[in-house]
């Protein structure tokens, strides 16, 4: 199955809601909701996230990529994962 940005986003959304936002209404988590700068994910959360991505997609995120510059929103996360899948 080919992963698209959209399908990756859907998977990540479910992951973020379960891990970091239990109890939140899924509708409130939008594609551009800031996750790191918005206080939803901290440094420990981003490490957990990178382990999840590696397990799920076989994609390794570099330390510098685990920052708000690269993965602050679902869209940004999905984009970087998708680009690495294509490599």
């Amino acid at each position: 199955m080919t992963e698209t940005v959209e399908s990756i986003k859907a998977t990540l959304k479910e992951y973020v809601l379960n891990e970091f936002l239990p109890g939140e209404d899924p509708e409130d988590l939008e594609d551009d909701t800031p996750l790191i700068t918005g206080g939803i994910m901290d440094s420990i959360s981003t490490i957990k996230f990178s382990l999840f991505v590696e397990e799920k997609y076989g994609v390794e995120l570099q330390a510098h990529e685990l920052s708000a510059d690269y993965i602050d929103t679902l869209t940004a996360m999905a984009t970087i994962i998708q680009s690495k899948l294509g490599e």
Partner: peptide, 26 residues
């Protein structure tokens, strides 16, 4: 409006260092 955890966390970011933001809200 009903409280959104996302908005609560954003409020915390503006008022607390990251390591003090609660993991869970009830």
């Amino acid at each position: 409006d009903r409280p959104s955890i996302i908005k609560l966390k954003r409020f915390c970011v503006e008022n607390l260092p990251a390591y003090m933001i609660p993991d869970r809200f009830s």
